[in-house]
Write a protein that binds this DNA or RNA. Sequence first.
DNA 1: CGGGAGGTTGATCACCATCAACAACCGTGG
DNA 2: CCACGGTTGTTGATGGTGATCAACCTCCCG
Lengths: 241, 241
Amino acid sequence: MAFVQHQPQANRDAVLSSVVSQGELGTWEDVKNARSTRKAKIGVHKIIFHEGDEARSLYELVSGAAMLYKLLPDGRRQVVEVLGPGDLFGFDVAGRHGSSAETLISTEVMVYCRREIEDSIGAQSHVARCALHQVGAMHDHAVLLGRKSAYERVATFLMRFLQDPQARERKSQQPQARRVGRVSLHMTRQEMADYLGLTIETVSRVISDMKRKQVIYLEKHDKIVVSDIGALFQLTGAYPD
Amino acid sequence: MAFVQHQPQANRDAVLSSVVSQGELGTWEDVKNARSTRKAKIGVHKIIFHEGDEARSLYELVSGAAMLYKLLPDGRRQVVEVLGPGDLFGFDVAGRHGSSAETLISTEVMVYCRREIEDSIGAQSHVARCALHQVGAMHDHAVLLGRKSAYERVATFLMRFLQDPQARERKSQQPQARRVGRVSLHMTRQEMADYLGLTIETVSRVISDMKRKQVIYLEKHDKIVVSDIGALFQLTGAYPD
DNA sequence: CGGGAGGTTGATCACCATCAACAACCGTGG
DNA sequence: CCACGGTTGTTGATGGTGATCAACCTCCCG
């Protein structure tokens, strides 16, 4: 990430925070330890906030998984983001949440006070880094939604949520070796469909087809094992013929 | 430049920048005035940088318009962002540009040195604000790409680029009054199509249909006049039946 | 005028949505 | 233990929206 100062980052923030007038916090760690910051445990499929709600807090997902989604008046839904540990969310412009947030599984979040963030220098730069990362992810997702076929969408989805990140890196380097990977699906077919801009039936059909072609198989109803990562990667569309 | 601060609000940053080791700048304005910052004029349809290029600078669009797009290996293109005055771009993660940038019309940009931005506190928070705004815009666009029909996409596109922003605000307040608005299309059909996740033919057909239904008409080949903003808004899908 | 790029329109097709039926799963309670 | 209802997932039949292929038009700008 381009904005990260590799070695001296924490150092500089420490220097700065010592200068900032009393009451103001300097580093992201300071905000984490602020008295107004608290941790919350949230059950499965609970709504954290609704689209349109007043945005009072900033959230950080500590463990678990959640999604952000938007609704059209007639009920169509688009899941705009899938969140994992370390992701920030709820920091919307204009004081109102632009999307709803709902947990996918049991989840822990840190809840930060908005003012605290605004006053903190370290927090600003941490937020900037996260937001830039999200913009990049959204760009990729726009390509998926705008230009990829159903098959490519599901393949891209599976690649993205592969458990072992190393496996993803080595994906193209050893095209001959059939590498195996695992995906824990914390999402229902409906949620996947709303994320990928498809219908539940199409998602189901593509997954069935991948099973038939031995690219993946199911394990325990909510885990997908990718039996050939290379083959799956070929299907994402991100690879020349 | 960083040494004399006239505005009281910038007080804190002034204090900070005076502490930070020499050469570092505090406010966003400081960065604008930095010696490494320069302004560039770019002609029509020029490429500013390519996807994959090393990301050395941060850009701010001053006047004109540009787009960011990504390509799939087989040539499919998705325009992921349309940029107007005030928008920042080129600040990608991992040191490489995640998308290509190309001007739509003749454009002026400010070019900032990456290091300057990384070292500036005011710049960090300005970048954070812009990035958050972009994330919100991307969320809206994900809804468009994932869940809207061709007709709704074009209608949403036109609403978004209506010249007079006030008109957009009053859109639903006076549904009875046929309000008029203008859109300057600096984009070819191909660019619109790649932005909306459609084909050139579909965009053309929808626009023709809107003309037939008297919702819009063309003026001077590159300006669309919306003869009934309320009616157009109904077509965006963002309105209950 | 002629050529070329951009835009329009028509005919056909394919992908994916829709509608519908059924299967698998799971907790509950008899 | 099984019967049950509800939820989630699968599979099939059909249709519609938008892609594709192709021809033609309309501006420019020389």
